[in-house]
Design a protein around this nucleic acid. Sequence first.
DNA 1: AACTCGGGGAG
DNA 2: CTCCCAGAGTT
Length: 258
Amino acid sequence: MLQQTGVERVKKKYVEFLELFPDIETLAGASSADVIRAWSPLGYNRRALNLKRTAELVVAEYRGQIPRDEETLKSFPGIGPYTAAAVMAFAFHEDKAPVDTNISRILRRLFGIGRDVAKREDALMAQKILPLGKASAWSQALMDLGATICLPRKPLCHECPILEYCDAAPKLIAGGDEDTAPKSSSPYVGSTRYYRGRIVEALRGVPDGSSLGVLDLGHMIRDDFTSSDLNWLQLILFGLREDGLIAIEDSGDVTLPV
DNA sequence: AACTCGGGGAG
DNA sequence: CTCCCAGAGTT
């Protein structure tokens, strides 16, 4: 849930999700539709399916026990370098460094290293700044430092406990923005990504056993929908089906996957 | 290396 | 409005 999603927004949903799916077996045995519904409105809905698939794998291949092995964890869908290291450090208390966006930013400023380098886990090992035996507390401490003081836009350097070691501090305190990478972002509303979210959200309201006609669905997701947009909508639906987020019946009607 | 994938909140 | 978020998978 925390992948690219703020902590404060995850908290409540995390508790609700665990009430619905208290253990790995329950999640593995649940329907995809119920898991997708329970995920709303976190976004990145594939994470919900990946989590369920991982639960299925853990139940089927590992007796319901989450493997204490980083490479095995990374072999699960939706678990990459960060999440694998996070499980190893936070759950199993191994000396692994989960480098999230906060820690990456701190390393970048602290040592004046590049974005790509600071994102790698071994950047920490190379700097030998990861205290062995304390990876969990240390990682969480840095994440909190990044979330409260070493902020992305206006860092509060005057409150920073490691100000004297920071390469970027002088420039930041002087008010000079960092090397602002060209970020140009295209508008979100109206994008394919936007309508994918609208479609899944619309289908969440369809009870199990019912389905939605493509034309009706089109009118639900945009007011100016006409039959000339059917081709456009079909392409988005095919993409969603490819991701396993929806099911398309023989009649052409659409539902959440069973 | 560059894209895609959501949605809410802060500024 | 833009930027940001405890990233991952694909091309």
